[in-house]
């Protein structure tokens, strides 16, 4: 355990140093991260205005609140492992990682957390500025929603990490995973609540999205914080997060074990 902590600390330091070398890259990445929710916000605010101020109970200020919180949650939960894993496997970078006495996932978790901490320094100011510009309606936030948001966010981070790690392992079997990644990205875009609040999806799609795990990693914590969910829905949601997390961790381990066998069989 102490060894692991030391590993995390060391990884933390190298990642910070590394990222500070690429400040330009960080800035560009921030532009993309901030612009995306602004686009959805603009689209939906326009729709709301054309519908006499609100669509499905969302006014422009509600959309602003939704997409601003979504920006922060997305920043906290996103991973880039699906792209990195392909690179590791193709370029043979995975082999040395496998030789280390710790599971490669720890390195990835450490790097991910460090990167998040680092980008928080640009994302929070960006969100604050957008908050001033778009005048979001945060009236729904209550002490209990704010409190429940914390475990929901932590679970969302863990769940999305587990889902994307599992999908990333497709690279063990498929040479070109870009299309797979993109397919996942599009599914996530609509089913997680990233591009549009679930409430605005057509009925059957909305029902399906509520049962799938993606919503639990993004839309759910957002709606929870903004007071759009009843305490019962919030409780159900957190239970769903825990359930999905358990399923994904089991799946991740199983797929990883098979993938490694496949990887060493090919002799990369």
């Amino acid at each position: 355990m102490n060894d692991l902590l030391a590993l995390y600390r060391a990884q933390f330091r190298t990642t910070i140093a590394e990222q500070l070398q690429y400040r330009g890259g960080l800035a560009i990445w921030t532009i993309g991260l901030v612009l995306e929710p602004v686009i959805y916000l603009a689209v939906w605010s326009t729709v709301a205005r054309s519908q006499g101020g609100a669509v499905a109970g969302f006014g422009a200020a509600d959309f602003a609140a939704y997409f601003l919180v979504a920006l922060v949650v997305n920043q906290a939960t996103f991973t880039w492992i699906m792209w990195e894993m392909e690179y590791w496997i193709r370029q043979g970078h995975l082999s040395p990682l496998l030789l280390r006495p710790v599971h490669p996932i720890h390195r990835q978790i450490a790097v991910n957390l460090t990167f998040k901490l680092l980008t928080l320094t640009v994302v929070v100011p960006a969100a604050l500025i957008l908050g001033v510009v778009f005048r979001p309606n945060f009236a729904g936030i209550e002490p209990w929603t704010a409190l429940a948001f914390i475990p929901a966010l932590v679970l969302a981070i863990a769940l999305r990490f587990a889902i994307e790690w599992t999908l990333a392992l497709a690279a063990f079997w498929i040479t070109r995973v870009t299309a797979v990644n993109q397919l996942y990205y599009v599914a996530f875009l609509f089913l997680s609540g990233q591009a549009v609040p679930l409430l605005l999806l057509p009925g059957p799609v909305k029902a399906a999205a509520e049962w799938l795990p993606f919503y639990r990693t993004l839309g759910f914590p957002v709606e929870l914080l903004l007071g759009r969910l009843s305490p019962q829905d919030a409780a159900v949601g957190i239970v769903a997060q825990v359930g999905w997390l358990a399923v994904m961790v089991v799946l991740l381990n199983a797929v990883w074990a098979r993938g490694i066998r496949q990887y060493s069989a090919v002799g990369a």
């Binding site: 326009t46 729709v47 054309s50 669509v55 549009v196 057509p202």
Partner: peptide
């Protein structure tokens, strides 16, 4: 898909 969802809620965007 995005266009579809948008136009399920409105007739014209801007």
């Amino acid at each position: 898909l995005g266009l579809g969802i948008v136009f399920s809620k409105t007739d014209a965007l801007g």
